[in-house]
């Protein structure tokens, strides 16, 4: 009787332990599709070009840029301070240690944001933290910061201030500022002298008097 009770007790103990641990054993990454879909739909993972430029100019130490393009594209041009981790080798062991951390925010970018978004999904599935995607990628960065469009005259003062910021940021990121000359040339032109006007006295025509 005593042994039977002990057996039942142990059985119950084992079953309970298995049931308790089961959710953790179901899959390596415990993110559920529902929670991941909610994170994907949310736009919190994006940073726009203006915000990024501001952080980089102010040398924000909490930001690290990761360029996901190929090595050749990276060599041609990359946003200053970015490091290159091509998308092909994203999940390599050597990159895991760099991407899987919680000290800084990692901004992922590619030419557009299709690949950067894919990289975000993969890293999010692996439960990597503090990952951000540059909205519209390098294309957006070029259109916004490196080659901004001059606002129309009727536009708001805020738009002009934003344009000035973008133009200045462009210089910081390597675009030379050449829209104004270094020194204006001052030319003096002699004013034409006015002709002297000599008034001519009109001679009154005298009508002869008398006569018939």
């Amino acid at each position: 009787m005593k042994n039977k009770n002990l057996f039942l007790f142990l059985l119950l103990l084992i079953v309970s332990a298995i049931v308790f641990i089961m959710p953790l054993l179901i899959k390596g990454d415990s993110l559920t599709p529902k929670s991941q879909l909610a994170a994907i739909i949310s736009s919190e993972r994006f940073i726009n070009a203006d915000e990024l430029a501001d952080k980089l100019i102010n040398k924000d130490p909490s930001i690290v840029l990761v360029d996901l393009r190929t090595n050749a594209e990276f060599e041609q041009y990359h946003i200053p301070t970015a490091i290159n981790i091509p998308f092909d080798s994203l999940l390599d062991d050597e990159n895991k240690a760099f991407l899987n951390q919680d000290k800084v925010s990692i901004v992922l970018y590619s030419n557009d944001y299709l690949i950067a978004d894919q990289a975000w999904f993969l890293c999010n599935s692996l439960k990597y933290k503090n990952l951000i995607v540059l909205k519209d990628g390098l294309k957006g960065f070029y259109n916004t910061i490196l080659n901004p469009v001059l606002p129309e005259e009727k536009m708001d003062q805020v738009d002009f201030e934003r344009y000035n910021f973008r133009k200045a940021a462009g210089i910081y990121f390597g675009v030379p500022y050449n829209t104004a000359p270094e020194k204006a040339v001052i030319k003096t032109v002699e004013k034409p002298t006015l002709k002297k006007v000599v008034p001519v006295k009109k001679v009154k025509v005298e009508v002869e008097e008398g006569g018939c």
């Binding site: 041609q76 041009y77 675009v175 270094e182 032109v189």
Partner: peptide, 25 residues
């Protein structure tokens, strides 16, 4: 190509503006 854009931007030479001031007699 952003690299080309930056290169071309640095090559563009902007002629200095002429400011004409009339010389008064």
């Amino acid at each position: 190509s952003i690299a080309d854009f930056i290169k071309k931007s640095s090559e563009v030479k902007v002629e200095p503006k002429e400011i004409i001031i009339p010389k008064l007699n």
